[in-house]
Write a protein that binds this DNA or RNA. Structure first.
Lengths: 213, 213
DNA sequence: ATTAACTTGCACAGCAGTGTGCAAGTTATC
DNA sequence: GATAACTTGCACACTGCTGTGCAAGTTAAT
């Protein structure tokens, strides 16, 4: 047993579950409406508004945690891309981010709030650096367009991925394919070149079930 | 002179100017922040909040007028495109919309509010129809990508134009060029094909000053 | 079984916004 | 110069949100 002085009984299991539940609820609620009220989030989590304030100091703290969660996932994705061919790297990155569509939606929605603009920017810095790196490589190897400066092209790629993932119906199986093709197109490939590339690397747009089978 | 019974002196000139000033102010304020307060808009117009309510029933009426104004411009632009080559038509449309960048920003910002979603949708219907029409023609002539269904491609084109116009710095002279190239890329052209097309039709990305000289 | 952790519901203060009424002032138009 | 149109400033009621305090209840851990 722990000493009764500095003991401070450890947090209850249900409390931890509730905290996670709030984050999940916020995930859903904020993706739908980035300025959903604390009450709406708490309700979605099956808790009272008052209880939520027992887990998070204020609305901002909750949002910040969501941003941190999402950014961690994205940056892990970015770190996992290591293809030598920049075109393949871009395609794989787009496909991987599509798998995180739900998180992309939340982050994109939150980033629209002036309040969290620079916060999301710094959290996503590693991902942005990875994109710039891929684009530079691709331009040096003359496999990506060179009529647009690398930083601009990286931005274009990022915006295209965000747009196609968050604004086109992401439920259909064709959506991942579309996201990948859109990114390749904006990077300078013709649609036939993109098509050929995806035939050469069928695993990029393979569904997770097929990959695990 | 008019009869003293149904006379009702005509509205004062300064009142008309103020009304126009409010719309201009709303244009600026809402492009910056789609949920700017009535007070902020009135201040920007150099009027009191109270005076604004003399010109518009409520905030919604003001927003609706802005949407109608912008939609009218866009639909006029869409109607003016009559190139036989779908690629040229798309390029010209993108360039023309870039000239309306300020209006695109306002409309896009307003459209983000759930409240005005279907309103903006119906107002922009003619523009959307024009894009679908161009895309269909291009696919039939085999000059645009055919790996994506026409409605989806039209949507993709629209989103790309909106994204590049509203989210990339629109002040630099290269921005119009970028908008046009992005649209052509998403439509399936390689960056070299797009480049060649723009060299064949230099007037598309010509600056208004150069065109009038 | 006891205890501390947790949740709830309510009340409260505060903030920011909307839309209205009204009296008093200014100003374009007749 | 008379008059109606317009603007202003203030007060007001209302809504919807945030964050806090507190008493009372419930529940997991010890």
């Amino acid at each position: 047993m722990t000493s009764p002085i500095d003991a401070a009984r450890r947090p209850r299991r249900d409390a931890l579950e509730n905290r996670a539940g709030i984050l999940a609820a916020a995930h859903v609620a904020l993706a739908h409406d980035p300025r959903a009220s604390v009450d709406a989030i708490a309700r979605q989590a099956g808790l009272s508004r008052r209880a939520l304030y027992g887990h998070f100091d204020d609305r901002d703290a909750l949002v910040r945690e969501l941003v941190a969660q999402g950014a961690a996932r994205f940056n892990a994705v970015a770190a996992s891309i290591d293809d030598a061919d920049a075109r393949v790297a871009l395609a794989r990155l787009a496909a991987a981010l599509w798998n995180e569509a739900a998180h992309v939606q939340v982050l994109a929605a939150i980033a629209l709030d002036e309040a969290h603009l620079e916060e999301t920017a710094t959290a996503l810095a590693p991902l942005r650096r990875a994109v710039v790196h891929i684009v530079r490589d691709g331009q040096d190897a003359d496999v990506l367009r060179t009529d647009v400066a690398a930083p601009t092209l990286a931005r274009l790629v990022e915006e295209t991925a965000r747009t196609v993932i968050t604004r086109i119906d992401a439920s259909s199986p064709a959506a991942r394919d579309l996201a990948v093709r859109a990114v390749l197109s904006i990077a300078g490939l013709s649609w036939r070149q993109a098509d050929a590339l995806l035939h050469e690397h069928p695993e990029i747009v393979a569904t997770p079930e097929a990959a695990s089978a």
